[in-house]
Design a protein around this nucleic acid. Structure first.
Lengths: 194, 194
DNA sequence: TAACTAAAAATGAACGTTCATTCTTTTTTT
DNA sequence: AAAAAAAGAATGAACGTTCATTTTTAGTTA
């Protein structure tokens, strides 16, 4: 195993603990001491890896966001048809939100509170470009409604966050056929009606 | 002006200050002392109206949620057609989220964090029944897809929260034609394709 | 109406706790 | 043996909450 100056394992453990504790207790009830304890590290050690608590949360956000978009676009290729490309990306995102539920929950919490500072938020948005390009192509081909990317995202992608959260809270159980139904609803909402 | 034992004005000022401060700074950066200051009240006075900070936030959540659903259904009548009823409710909700943006933002934050305890969350859901009944009717009439209420809500209603938040963050400007487009996307996502 | 009074409401200051962060020392690495 | 990394204990500030006191209210008496 390669050795960096500071242990990457320790950093990862800190990020992991942050996600878990913030998910379960919220930012306001997640003291540095608990993060340190869960990561099996002294509180002082956190400050070797991160400037302060805000920096720890910002960096965690950016990393999880990057992981999310990497997963979403991992198997996508630009020469796919708009419909195939969208279905592929959509299902990868659904997959991520269900399998990496903890990480997706963390993102949802960050995206809906003033927990993250503005620069980190902007940094996190950048990585969605392939999806926006795909929609651009879809609009040109007359397959996708000529709407702003925000509206397309709101209807095609964001509903998955709501479903993930209600599922996590135990309100109902998502299964494979729900995923297919949700995909159909997503596509119906943004596709041009012939 | 009628006089209650304890001043209802003071209570309202506290609730209002809570919404404003939690919206701008998050729960974790909203100390009771600031809430008291903004409401022009002593910190000790808060505890005459609320048990503690958690109780203050819970009660605020329930009140805002009730205000939201009251507004949503205020002009709805059960003898309306499914399509008309849905459009009416949808547009009332859109209206609320844009006009009472602060209140809607507060709800979004509560709904996406562990800020609120479970009983208050359940209390908040109750009031949506008229919409669920409408969908039930729509399914019977073959107008609305036979999907779970959670999925219908995720696609028909929840996207408005995303749009509201991005608009509030200044990412883009929502206008009347966006609202119409969004309504169409909402209906397209849940209506049965003939 | 005016004075009085007991209870309720409101307050500013204080309390004990917890927090993020730093300091000093020890351990590990090279 | 020097430098880097990690640790536990310490620190000062900030927090939620309570305490002791003052102010306001509402009812009663004159």
């Amino acid at each position: 195993m390669a050795k960096l100056q500071k242990s990457i394992d320790k950093r990862n453990a800190l990020v992991k603990a942050t996600i878990e504790l913030v998910n379960n207790n919220g930012f306001h009830a997640t003291p540095m001491s608990k993060i340190a304890k869960m990561a099996k590290v002294s509180p002082a050690t956190i400050y070797l890896y991160f400037e302060n608590k805000q920096d720890l949360v910002n960096q965690t956000y950016i990393e999880v966001k990057a992981e999310y978009t990497n997963y979403a676009f991992a198997t996508y290729e630009e020469n796919m048809s708009v419909e195939d490309g969208f279905e592929l990306i959509w299902k990868r995102i659904a997959d991520f939100k269900l399998k990496e539920c903890e990480h997706a929950m963390f993102l949802a919490q960050c995206d809906n509170t003033p927990m993250i500072d503005e620069p980190s938020r902007i940094e996190g948005i950048k990585h969605l470009q392939p999806l926006l390009d795909l929609w651009q192509r879809g609009k040109k081909e007359g397959l996708v409604k000529p709407l702003s990317d925000f509206i397309l995202y709101a209807y095609a992608i964001n509903p998955l966050s709501f479903l993930m959260i209600t599922q996590k809270r135990g309100a109902f159980q998502l299964n494979e056929s729900h995923i297919q139904e949700a995909y159909q609803a997503a596509w119906d909402s943004i596709k041009v009606n012939k």
